[in-house]
Every structure is written in C-alpha cells, then in structure tokens.
Design a protein around this nucleic acid. Structure first.
Length: 187
DNA sequence: TGGCCGATATGCT
DNA sequence: GCATATCGGCCAA
C-alpha cells in the first residue's frame, strides 16, 4: 500500500525494499543520525530505470542499483564532488539521492567541515551534505543501517514534489521531494 | 585512445 | 544569471 507510515514504524530494511519513489518521498522529514551528528532530511530525489538514472547512464558503476536495496551508493561528479544515495527497490533498479539536510545536532562540527557559518549553507545540496557529514568513499556498498539510523518524523511533514535538478533527460518526472517551506532545501 | 558529458558548487557580473 | 573548475565513466572509432 501507499501508506507513508507512522512515527512508530521503524525505518528498516523493508522500508528500503520498496520502490525508489516511495522511499524518497517517505524519507523527507526523517531524522538521519550518524555518530554524534543528527540532521533532518529535507530534500531527496528518486532514480530508477529512467533515462536520467545512473543505472542507465553509468551502468557499470551503478549496477548495485539493480541488485541491492538499503545500501550506500556514492558517486563522483564534476571531478570534485561526491553525493550520497541509498539504494532501493527489492524488485528493480532504484536509489534515493539525499539532496539536503537541516542540521540539528553537531551543527558546529558540520559547519566547520564546510567552512561556512550560515546554517543554510551547511548541507543545502547533495555534495554539501556529503562534506558536512565527514564521510568518505569507503562507505560505498555498506549497509545504510550499519552506518546511519533513520527516525520517522514525529508529525507528517508537508512534502512537495517537482522535477529533479541538474538532469537533461526525463525532466517530466516529478521525482524530487522536499519539505515545503524549509529554508535548508537546496533551492 | 580521444572526446564528450555530467544527479555540483562557487564566485563574479 | 553565467562561467568555470576538474576528472572519472563511457562509448565510438
């Protein structure tokens, strides 16, 4: 069913076994914990077997999109940047790109890593949040739940959707999800 | 082996 | 709003 779940439902492997679009939508508002850091996921994007997906455009490096769920898929882009995804969909290719976080705990640590002071500049973009979390390429392929914990929001967030950002193909799909009005969203 | 392009961020006009 | 750094992945040749 298409139920978004309640605050009591855990975010476990079964959560990520669902389709990428449902996983992306339902991660908005969740709290991501990594060590002493905590942040609210405020923006995500879903990728599946569509023409903009790395499963299609980078079939070798993104093969794990088709064979795993609940695993960390990390990719490099424009030479410099790295972005963090969690694979999804037990029955087909899927991954969810984490695009923006609202820092909650360990804010000073994240700000220092990013070299910024404005809280809105800490993690308001996929490559920004990767730096803010202080993670590395070594997490590629790891179980997401071995590295992070995810907690449902106490109250259902207001989730908006629109076209994914930075892609040249499949622009009509509205597979970007964000918390409406949250200032930490990338745009 | 060469050339093109990219799920970005930043700085400047 | 626009240019550009910077380099791995991919495929055509």
């Amino acid at each position: 069913m298409a139920c978004a779940g309640t605050a009591a439902d855990p975010i476990d492997d079964a959560f990520f076994a669902r389709g990428a679009v449902a996983v992306a939508r339902d991660l908005v508002g969740a709290t991501l914990r990594f060590g002493r850091l905590a942040a609210r996921i405020v923006e995500t994007e879903a990728y599946a077997g569509d023409p903009a997906s790395h499963f299609v455009t980078r079939p070798r490096t993104a093969a794990m999109m088709g064979t795993t769920f609940g695993r960390l898929y990390i990719y490099r882009i424009y030479g410099l940047h790295r972005c963090l995804n969690v694979t999804a969909d037990r029955n087909g290719p899927g991954a969810v790109l984490l695009r923006a976080l609202e820092p909650i705990e360990g804010v000073a640590e994240m700000a220092r890593r990013r070299g910024v002071t404005d809280p809105r500049q800490i993690a308001s973009g996929p490559a920004k949040l990767f730096v803010a979390l202080g993670i590395g390429d070594d997490l590629l392929g790891a179980r997401a739940l071995d590295e992070f914990t995810f907690e449902r929001p106490a109250r259902p967030p207001r989730v908006a959707s629109g076209p994914r950002i930075g892609i040249s193909r499949a622009k009509s799909l509205r597979w970007r999800f964000w918390e409406r009005g949250n200032p930490h969203v990338s745009r």
